[in-house]
């Protein structure tokens, strides 16, 4: 396993790429992407069994970004891993692109599922994990949902299903950045006690700081070691993490970057 400083550097590069792509495409959902970066970087640079040169390797682990609106974090990570070129990334959200504001299966190598409507990627991940188990394959499945996504009924249908099927090859991450699309989680639809909810549904639950690589890496290792069922990692994160004027704001779910704000943001990283 590489050193923590290695992951920190990769996360910085991903955030820079992500912001540049968001600026060029004038897209929204920047804050929602920034909160996911550290977990996604840990996955792609340290946890998942993947090979960007063989994106369809039948033995690969699969990551499904159920909170599809945070796609920029995934796209930038995939570009840094050379699944596709940075030039393709920088066409994101522009006329003639295949990189939409939500991931589309096979739009580029490494994108494993079409998501964007909340509550879809997680059930798909449950089905994949179930399918791998039935075929006695060793692939592991990781999915990430948002806190707002915990409002969706389908999320809890999948939450009920995965422990019933004893899917120990499935790990779920809740990107708990505390702000959903029209208010804070607390004011719109309070989720607390969230850890207890997942425990009561039968999950092995690990609560971490989603920006601390030591905790992130350790959590995924513990998830793999847990043999009796699926693991849910409740990752406390900060919406807009890394850019002071975006952190903990609702606005940066929607706002676009202009040149001055991009320079200011890049200078902070």
């Amino acid at each position: 396993m590489p050193k923590i400083s290695f992951f920190k550097n990769k996360a910085r590069e991903v955030r820079k790429l992500l912001l540049t792509a968001a600026f060029k495409g004038r897209s929204a959902h920047i804050g929602s992407a920034l909160s996911t970066v550290d977990v996604i970087v840990a996955l792609y640079f340290g946890i998942l069994n993947i090979n960007p040169k063989k994106p369809k390797d039948p033995k690969r682990d699969i990551f499904i970004l159920s909170k599809g609106h945070g796609c920029l974090g995934l796209y930038a990570t995939l570009a840094l891993k050379a699944y596709f070129s940075k030039n393709i990334l920088l066409k994101y959200f522009k006329d003639g692109t295949t990189l939409a504001g939500h991931p589309v299966l096979n739009a580029q190598p490494g994108i494993e599922s079409s998501t964007g409507s909340l509550g879809h990627g997680f059930p798909t991940a449950v089905g994949l994990a179930y399918g791998f188990k039935k075929q006695k394959r060793l692939n592991r499945v990781v999915t990430m949902i948002s806190d707002g996504e915990c409002d969706e009924g389908a999320t809890w249908e999948a939450a009920l299903a995965a422990p019933n099927f004893k899917l120990n090859n499935l790990t779920l991450v809740v990107d708990y950045n505390k702000i959903q699309s029209f208010g804070t989680v607390k004011e719109v639809m309070d989720l607390e006690p969230l850890v207890k909810k997942w425990q009561d549904f039968g999950w092995n639950v690990i609560e971490i700081n989603g920006h601390d690589f030591r905790q992130i890496l350790a959590a995924f290792k513990r998830a793999k070691a847990h043999k009796s069922g699926p693991t849910a990692i409740i990752a406390h994160t900060i919406k807009g993490k890394g850019v002071s004027f975006m952190e903990n704001t609702l606005e940066w779910h929607y706002f676009n970057l202009d040149e001055a704000k991009l320079s200011k943001a890049l200078a902070e990283l």
Binding site: Q180, F182, L250, Y254
Partner: peptide, 24 residues
């Protein structure tokens, strides 16, 4: 849970006739 820069006025002026039901 939608309506950024659209529903704020309704929410603030008519709070008793408004509900954000979440992403449900």
């Amino acid at each position: 849970d939608l309506g950024f820069m659209a529903l704020e006025e309704f929410r603030d002026v008519l709070p008793n006739q408004y509900l954000n039901a979440g992403v449900s």
